[in-house]
């Protein structure tokens, strides 16, 4: 199982997925990151075995007359990585220190 380099982006994304964001675009919104950042990161995380992807219910998609969306969830390894991610986010908060919180994202 490949390891993940924990960056702010990966940490944010893991946190977003852990808190129930299933779809790529939801993760983007939660992290306030553009698609060109989130998707490549999702692919890398999936490849590293931290995330696992599935598909949304086909009936739901069909009832709305559109193709299915891919869903993302943490794997077992992902739960370990999440601890690392939270530590990373904690560290960022600490570094920001006295700065007033800007858009806090999801985390």
């Amino acid at each position: 199982m490949a390891s993940v380099r924990m960056t702010q982006v990966t940490a944010l994304i893991l946190r977003a997925v852990a808190s129930g964001r299933r779809y790529g675009f939801d993760v983007m919104d939660a992290c306030d990151l553009p698609s060109g950042t989130v998707y490549p990161a999702l692919r890398r995380l999936e490849r590293a075995g931290v995330l696992r992807s599935g598909w949304e219910d086909v009936d739901e998609a069909r009832s709305e007359g559109r193709p299915r969306r891919r869903t993302y969830a943490l794997t077992e390894a992902g739960r370990d990585a999440l601890r690392e991610a939270d530590a990373k986010l904690q560290e960022i908060r600490r570094l920001l220190g006295d700065f007033p919180p800007a858009t806090a994202g999801e985390a």
Partner: peptide, 10 residues
């Protein structure tokens, strides 16, 4: 399908 799905849903 994934991209179409996301874009169609929003």
């Amino acid at each position: 399908e994934e991209w179409d799905g996301e874009l169609a849903a929003r």
